[in-house]
Design a protein around this nucleic acid. Structure first.
Lengths: 229, 229
DNA sequence: TTAAAATGATGATTTATGTCATCAAACTTG
DNA sequence: CAAGTTTGATGACATAAATCATCATTTTAA
């Protein structure tokens, strides 16, 4: 277990928007905060539950996903260190409309939603940074809509690999902590198709894969597949 | 052409967030505002252009869509009176990443993006309302991702019809101002498939269609198709 | 007012990708 | 450490929906 931070005031691991707060506001935030650790695979928040806290990712990695009526899932997003989770429900629903689960051992700060909403109301600089974060999300979702509706298997999986390398792991040979099922649920295809795409890309020398280690060998071709796929 | 409003201060047609502004701030907003009218079919903003203004929809209806490399389109959203368009690019790109076109004769207020950003920074109440609007968008996009990736033709088109009746036209027999092509680009399927879905739904007595007038006869069954489809 | 262009409709064919069945390998867990 | 469970892989088959070809109808523009 990670040692708990003494206070938001002393935290040198703040998300962008918390950097905009005054000392008083940080003390206020701290008094509405809890720090929790999860093991890989554990569920952090469950779709259908009450929405009570914004989650800040101190360490680890999580998936945010919709649980669908046919008991399949759609992974909406994968978040790494420094992300705020749950922003879209601010000023809204009492009910959480997606689930969050740990892809690796993960520590989060849970901040009371009403405290967070109060900070937005009272501090425009903080609010502006929240808008900024939300907008990353929105533009990313638009690109996903394009990818998932207008590209076929290889193009979509190329997008997934590029996203993993550039955004999620921020590395090129990277250690995959997602299962094939996760990859399928993110790419919006069947597990079968993911496996086939991996085999194809490996055969074509676009990627190399050894156990959990994936290396993208030919970014250009992957980009090309993403565009034409 | 619509008569131009004298000032934001006197406007009784304000969007939610502008209701949060002080008189001074409204005067400031007004001094950074232009009012423009478009004919049905006209392009209001072009993907790839510089992003300079937030658009407020005074009257009419617009589509916001991505122009894709294969020269097909994906309609991201359809906006009616009272909507703010362009929020996702605040604090971001200089470049607009989607296009906006009028589906009916339309009048918009164009507000300088920097003026808008200044208002967010300086007024937390205004910012909170902007966050609120953005979050509608985000949650809606999540539902769309589910609809477009995990439902097939009939389910997706059922979603489209429900969205048109409940959100866009807010009426049940409604006059369709979208072409079959628009419907296809919104539903993410081919024009052919839209036509077939309309025929099927009509044959099954779920909808009635006469020229441009569509009536949903059986909401329950449409909901059922949306869920199972 | 006619010509041209865009939109709407129908049926036949093709194809991408999902489902199913089966098996191998690798973790869990008692 | 062995039994059971999850995860990864492969091939055969089924199917939803796209593409293509064709034609009717409406709208736009000369």
């Amino acid at each position: 277990m990670v040692e708990h931070k003494k206070s938001c005031l002393l935290c040198n691991n703040k998300s962008e928007c918390f950097k905009q707060l005054t000392d008083n506001e940080l003390v206020f935030a701290n008094s509405n905060r809890a720090e929790i650790s999860y093991r890989k695979g554990e569920m952090i928040a469950k779709q259908g539950n009450f929405y009570t806290h914004i989650l800040y990712l101190q360490s680890g990695m999580v998936k945010v996903y919709k649980e669908l009526p046919d008991s399949s899932n759609l992974i909406l997003s994968i978040f790494g260190v420094g992300s705020l989770i749950g922003l879209p429900f601010l000023f809204k629903n009492q009910i959480l409309d997606y689930s969050v689960a740990a892809l690796e051992d993960t520590t989060i700060c849970a901040i009371d939603r009403h405290a967070f909403e109060k900070l937005i109301h009272e501090n425009g600089e903080f609010a502006a940074e929240v808008v900024n974060q939300l907008n990353y999300c929105t533009l990313y979702n638009y690109d996903r809509l394009v990818s998932l509706t207008h590209k076929q298997l290889n193009g979509r999986f190329a997008d997934t690999l590029l996203y993993l390398s550039r955004v999620v792991y921020k590395a090129n040979p990277f250690i995959l902590t997602l299962s094939r099922k996760d990859l399928a649920e993110y790419t919006g295809v069947s597990v079968m198709s993911v496996i086939r795409a991996i085999k194809d890309f490996k055969n074509d020398g676009i990627i190399d894969i050894n156990g959990n280690k994936i290396e993208i060998l030919n970014f250009n071709q992957l980009e090309r597949i993403s565009k034409t796929g």
